[in-house]
């Protein structure tokens, strides 16, 4: 058994808790969503985790621009990669859920469309990195891109859909996670699930960054 950081154990425990109570815990009896309301514990944490990961990426991009240490660029890149993975999982789980509650996997819902655009912006980040050969240039340009990408991504998926009518709860004026779509018993599972999945995302990012450090070490030899 390798020695791992305490927060990785926290992630494991919270995820087991969230999966067991996610399937067996009490939920409100609602029409249309029925048992699929349990998806709140698995679909929504993907987006929360993605936002935390992309936020961490921005933080490291800013640190890179301030200190010009390649370590920050590696961290920023790793968190974007895991963030994109979480976003893609959020998108496909959302499409599956939507198929059985909204009647179609894709209904051009503002939040759906915005998150698809947002993911394309981050695919652009990966393409941009791949097109630059100089290490320092790549780090600088992608740090700036990552900051701007986040600055447009958050309004796009969080703020703008709330001004329009959306199939998602919490849009068109009503608060998200209000009494209509979540009760206190659900919150006892939902927030641990968010923390658990977010920590698991940082675990993935940690592994990617450690591989990058090793690659750097080898290429420097």
């Amino acid at each position: 058994m390798p020695k791992i950081s305490w927060w990785k154990w926290v992630s494991i425990l919270l995820l087991i808790y969230a999966v067991v109570l996610g399937f067996l815990g009490p939920i409100p009896r609602l029409h249309i969503v029925n048992e699929s309301i349990r998806n709140t514990y698995f679909h929504v944490p993907m987006w929360f985790g993605m936002i935390f990961l992309l936020g961490a990426s921005v933080w490291n991009s800013i640190q890179y621009l301030r200190h010009s240490r390649l370590e920050y660029d590696m961290l920023s890149h790793a968190y974007v990669q895991v963030g994109i993975l979480f976003g893609a999982l959020g998108l496909v789980t959302g499409m599956l859920w939507a198929n059985y509650t909204w009647g179609a996997p894709w209904s051009n819902d503002p939040k759906q469309t915005a998150s698809a655009i947002g993911l394309l912006i981050y695919f652009g980040y990966l393409v941009l990195r791949g097109s630059l050969n100089s290490e320092k240039e790549r780090a600088k340009v992608s740090a700036v891109y990552s900051i701007f990408a986040f600055a447009i991504f958050i309004p796009l998926i969080w703020v703008l859909p709330r001004f329009t009518d959306s199939l998602h709860p919490g849009n068109g004026g009503n608060p998200a996670f209000g009494k209509y779509d979540m009760d206190n018993q659900m919150r006892m599972v939902f927030y641990p699930a968010v923390i658990g999945w977010t920590l698991m995302g940082f675990w993935f990012g940690n592994l990617i960054v450690r591989i990058s450090r090793l690659q750097n070490k080898f290429s420097a030899l």
Binding site: M1, P2, K3, I4, W203, L207, R213, L214, K217
Partner: peptide, 17 residues
């Protein structure tokens, strides 16, 4: 994840990262 952790820790130890 534990398998990857183990292999990475070993490599890090060998290469003093």
């Amino acid at each position: 994840l534990f398998v990857v952790e183990k292999r990475l820790s070993k490599l890090e130890k060998e290469n003093q990262v």
